[in-house]
Computed example of a mutant assay.
Amino acid sequence: MAALSLLSLLLILLLPLCLLLVLYLIVRPRPVKIPIKDRHVFVTGGSSGIGLAIAHRAASEGARVSILARSQAKLDEAKQAIQLATGVDVATFSADVRDFDALRRATEEAGPVDVLVVNHGVYLPKELATQELDEVRFMIDVNLIGSFNMIKAFLPAMKARTDRRPASVVLMSSQAGQVGIYGYTAYCASKFGLRGLAEALQQEIIADDIHVSLVFPSYTDTPGLVEENKRRPPLTRVITGSSGAMKADEVAEKALNGIKSGSFIVPCNFEGYLLAIVTAGLSPQRSYVMAFVEVVSASILRLTALFFQWNWYSSIEKWHAQSKQ
Rank of each mutant, 00 (worst) to 15 (best):
A2R: 12
L9P: 02
L11M: 09
L15F: 15
P16M: 05
L23R: 04
R28G: 11
I36S: 14
I36D: 13
T44G: 06
S47H: 10
L52P: 06
R57F: 06
A58M: 08
A59K: 00
A59R: 00
K74A: 01
Q80L: 12
T92A: 06
D99T: 10
D101M: 09
L103I: 07
E109G: 11
D114Q: 10
N119I: 08
G121T: 10
L124P: 03
E127I: 10
L133C: 10
I140W: 01
V142N: 04
N143I: 03
G146R: 02
G146L: 06
F148R: 01
F154P: 02
T162C: 05
D163Y: 06
M172V: 12
Q178G: 12
G180P: 11
Y182E: 14
G183D: 10
T185I: 09
A186Q: 08
R195I: 15
L197P: 08
A198N: 09
P217N: 04
P217L: 11
P217R: 02
T220G: 01
D221I: 06
P223G: 05
L225C: 00
R232G: 08
P234G: 00
S242I: 08
E253Q: 14
I259L: 02
F264V: 02
F264Q: 07
E271V: 09
Y288S: 10
S297R: 02
L301Y: 01
R302D: 13
T304H: 11
L306H: 04
W310R: 11
I316P: 00
